[in-house]
């Protein structure tokens, strides 16, 4: 299937001006989003996931600066837009689901009205009554029981899971082409998480929108995303289809993320973690940003930044380990088992 690109992000850089200097929060990030597909951006706190999403919405803080890059959406570079033009896109063509449903809704406005708000904003001439009718439909679509009874409720009367459904209803109101979900299930109970994920997958099928799904939890991604971008210290370190990332991971950071996912049959009695903390982006380290925490780091990692090595036409990783001159390293048993599974998968095809 020839995939239609909805959004192309090219060489995006985002800096934040602070008193201490410029924090280079996003460094040379590129990815494509295809129609009807889901791209998951995975990384730990501070890796630049949220800044990426806010940049896609034009909602960065005032001290943010974008020295370089392009966001191509429908033939336009979003970075050239004026604020008024952004307002026509936000909540209309690109919309966003936020992380914490407990604080994302206006506590003093009725929920139905909050859902109707983007409709009224983006549909000139829509009457309030029609907008409320549509808001009710949306509430039913996202699975809010007895929506007609609860349309005039205030957020505090609802549970977190229900509020997140309302937030999703707001994001879906104008049938956006791109939906950005910034850790939409992080603040929810695990059981509710599964419901919300299921619902999002269903909705995506129905309205055929593309989703950028931000998470720190690779486990959530597995059954849902088509492509995965692993972010570290403001860069994408590995990018590939969900199978490639899960069964043929090449970057040591991805290995670390996969290793730190506990599984039922893992026999270890301690949870695995990646030692250390992400680097200070005020002064990004020389060479590979992950080198200091990487037990497979090579001497060159501390000297020179690795380029993107192509693993397959859809799979790239930013590590010197893929250089033909690099020594062969042996990752953990978990990763080796995944590689073995990858061989079997390839054999099946």
């Amino acid at each position: 299937m020839a995939e239609e690109k909805v959004l192309e992000v090219k060489n995006l850089h985002v800096n934040f001006h602070t008193y201490a200097g410029d924090v280079k929060a996003i460094r040379n990030v590129s990815f494509d989003l295809e129609k009807g597909q889901t791209l998951a951006i995975v990384g730990e706190s501070g890796s630049g996931k949220s800044v990426t999403t806010k940049t896609l919405m034009g909602l960065n803080a005032k001290n943010a600066e974008i020295p370089e890059g392009e966001l191509l959406f429908k033939g336009r570079n979003l970075l050239d837009l004026k604020e008024e033009e952004w307002q026509k896109i936000r909540g209309n063509e690109i919309s966003m689901i936020f992380q914490d449903p407990m604080t994302s809704l206006d506590p003093t406005m009725r929920i139905g009205k909050q859902i109707a708000e983007p409709l009224l904003k983006h549909n000139k001439g829509m009457s309030k009554a029609d907008a409320m009718k549509r808001a009710l439909e949306l509430m039913q679509q996202v699975g809010i029981p007895d929506a007609e009874v609860h349309i005039n409720d205030y957020p505090h009367q609802w549970s977190g899971g229900m509020r997140q459904r309302a937030v999703i209803a707001i994001a879906l109101a104008a049938d956006p082409e791109i939906l950005i979900a910034d850790e939409p299930t992080t603040a929810l109970d695990v059981t509710i998480q599964a419901q919300i994920m299921h619902m999002m997958a269903e909705l995506q099928e129905r309205i055929n929108s593309s989703i950028v799904f931000i998470t720190h939890d690779l486990g959530v991604v597995a059954g849902f995303a088509h492509k995965v971008a692993v972010m570290y210290a403001g860069e994408i370190v590995e990018y590939g289809t969900v199978e490639e990332i899960f069964y043929n991971p090449q970057h040591p950071y991805t290995w670390g993320l996969l290793d730190s996912m506990p599984t039922v049959d893992s026999s270890v009695d301690r949870l695995v973690s990646i030692p250390g903390t992400p680097p200070d982006l005020l002064n990004p380290p020389k060479g590979d940003a992950f080198a200091a925490r990487n037990k497979f780091a090579l001497a060159i990692d501390f000297e020179e930044e690795p380029p993107y090595f192509e693993v397959s036409p859809t799979h790239f990783a930013k590590t010197w380990l893929l250089d033909p001159r690099a020594p062969k390293v042996t990752p953990s048993d978990n990763i080796l088992a995944r590689w073995k599974r990858w061989e079997e998968l390839k054999g099946d095809k």
Partner: peptide
């Protein structure tokens, strides 16, 4: 600086 204001902006509302 609260989340619901960010959401309101994300809806495309003017300042």
């Amino acid at each position: 600086s609260s989340d619901y204001i960010l959401l309101a902006r994300a809806k495309g509302l003017s300042e």
